[in-house]
């Protein structure tokens, strides 16, 4: 399928893309849920009245369009003296966020990140929160963040135990691994895999 980048705004990487008969407005973070279907007359309106630049370039897929838009944005902002920061200031985000937003973030950690096992994301956020002025100003946030960190460490311990049990019960090459002979173990696993052996997965998983 052809992807035609009809028009875009280089400053913020918002774009109008034609795919088949469909014309869509896309914007970072480029999710299906934030794409808006547009009528064909939209290109003229967007260009004449809403600061879009006509483009007309064809792309092979969404990935190449998004890469192009990211590059255009970076170049445009650099040229205009507002370069995009290489990393965002994690503490500043938390210091300007209203209390209800921070509480929402904590709810996300509790209800989504921990149950889904995204523990690094959860840890990064919670440590940043505890370091920020926001938690100092709101002791309730500190208490909840502390509780969630405890939950995470329990989840991590549980994960580790499960891995150990798995290893001791199912790893037929345990003695080789313990002797730091993992390379030999992997070679053995590869060999068994080539022979369509059952234990290959277990050895490599360890």
């Amino acid at each position: 399928m052809n992807f035609i980048l009809e028009a875009f705004s280089p400053a913020d990487a918002v774009a109008i893309v034609q795919t088949g008969q469909r014309l869509r407005l896309i914007r970072p973070p480029y999710r299906q849920s934030n794409a808006i279907e547009l009528p064909n007359s939209a290109i003229q309106d967007a260009v004449i009245n809403h600061d879009f630049h006509v483009c007309g370039r064809q792309f092979e897929n969404w990935e190449t369009i998004i890469a192009f838009l990211n590059q255009q944005l970076a170049d445009y902002r650099q040229k205009h003296g507002h370069p995009v920061a290489e990393t965002l200031d994690s503490l500043e985000i938390l210091e300007v966020a209203p209390l209800e937003v921070l509480q929402g973030f904590l709810d996300n950690v509790e209800n989504q990140l921990i149950p889904q096992g995204q523990l690094e994301h959860a840890n990064n956020f919670l440590f940043a929160l505890l370091e920020s002025g926001a938690s100092k100003a709101n002791p309730d946030l500190t208490i909840k963040a502390g509780k969630l960190l405890k939950q995470i460490s329990q989840a991590e311990a549980c994960k580790k135990n499960t891995a150990l049990v798995f290893e001791s019960q199912y790893n037929p090459f345990k003695s080789l691994v313990q002797k730091n002979k993992t390379e030999m173990a992997n070679q053995a696993a590869d060999y068994i895999k080539q022979q369509h052996g059952f234990f290959g997965f277990a050895a490599q998983a360890s």
Partner: peptide, 15 residues
């Protein structure tokens, strides 16, 4: 902004 704690955002997202 919250996603920033879990992954490196793209240029456009960071902007």
């Amino acid at each position: 902004a919250f996603a920033n704690y879990g992954r490196k955002l793209s240029e456009a997202e960071r902007a």
